[in-house]
């Protein structure tokens, strides 16, 4: 591979990896606190992707403004999903398996809803930029990928700040090791769980927008978070930092392999590689031998 193509692919890989990292963290933050795999995250991503499309297409065509609106909508969708399908069973003390079932059902419901209503067409986002790439020396860098990288980076930094320093962030971290005790320390655990779903929804909203903008929207766009879920697992369930690193590695590996062996073979290599990786290191990159439940 030529050097400039190699560099270009690494850059694209890290940008794509940034989106995987957003997915991994959005998925992982719910796992951390409620200990179930939240597949309904793909529903949030899909709704946000369509939402972003309609807003930017028909209401106001401006990249940053529609991104922010979609992000907030994603957060709201996350909160609503929690209130509708997870809170009722949580208050009844349902087992984790039921949370998993509800999350998968929600994901399927969203997918089938869009397939039934908007499924016949692909919906491409409007073109926000006149030029689609920038040239640096003999490198051609896609503007979309650059934006993806910058936005993922900023969002992850902001989230780190919220989790490390703010009141609700500290409460969230406390609840992730022990969900019963914080309320006896005066923490409103229902609120903290809502915040977790809001954060996950925000991340899902950005993911949906970025994916929609990059690939155009179809009913199955939500299933693209599978890579993020894999990143969360490789990263070590329970470790958000591990998920970010795994997301970046996965994106990088994917883009390098695509350049080397083509895109269809790449997916086969990556999915098989994950089996091997988890056989060698079942706790993931940074995980502390968490027992992966549900």
């Amino acid at each position: 591979m030529e050097l400039n193509i190699l560099l270009q692919q690494i850059f694209n890989g890290i940008s794509l990896g940034g989106v995987y990292a957003l997915e991994a963290v959005g998925f992982g933050i719910i796992f951390n606190i409620l200990k179930f795999s939240n597949f309904s995250h793909s529903g949030v991503v899909a709704i946000s992707a369509y939402f972003g499309f309609f807003v930017s297409r028909y209401i106001y065509t401006h990249f940053l403004v529609t991104l922010i609106i979609t992000t907030l909508a994603g957060g709201l969708i996350g909160v609503i999903i929690e209130k509708l399908i997870f809170r009722p069973i949580r208050l009844k003390g349902a087992p984790l398996t039921l949370f998993l079932v509800n999350s998968i059902t929600a994901a399927m419901l969203v997918q089938q809803f869009f397939a039934a209503t908007l499924g016949d067409d692909y919906y491409p986002y409007p073109v926000f930029m006149k030029q689609t790439s920038i040239n640096i020396g003999n490198l051609t860098i896609s503007k979309t990928y650059t934006l993806m990288l910058i936005i993922s980076g900023l969002v992850l930094l902001l989230l780190t700040y919220v989790l490390k320093r703010t009141k609700v962030g500290i409460a969230l971290r406390a609840a992730s090791t022990d969900i019963r005790t914080p309320s006896l320390m005066g923490v409103n655990i229902d609120f903290v769980i809502s915040v977790a779903f809001f954060i996950a929804g925000v991340l899902g909203g950005i993911t949906g927008y970025l994916l929609g903008m990059t690939y155009s929207v179809d009913p199955f766009i939500g299933s693209m978070i599978l890579k993020g879920i894999i990143a969360a697992i490789i990263g070590g369930m329970g470790s958000l930092g591990g998920g970010v690193i795994a997301g970046l590695l996965l994106g990088g590996a994917e883009c390098l392999l695509i350049a080397e062996i083509g895109s269809s073979l790449t997916q086969i290599v990556i999915y098989s590689g994950i089996f091997v990786l988890l056989l060698i290191r079942p706790e993931g990159i940074a995980g502390k031998r968490y027992i992966i439940k549900a």
């Binding site: 009141k167 500290i170 971290r173 406390a174 090791t177 914080p182 005066g186 923490v187």
Partner: peptide, 17 residues
């Protein structure tokens, strides 16, 4: 809270104030 340092353990309890 095993994943929070000693100071943060105390901060959790003061959040309500």
């Amino acid at each position: 809270f095993r994943n929070l340092n000693v100071l943060d353990n105390l901060r959790v309890a003061y959040g309500i104030k």
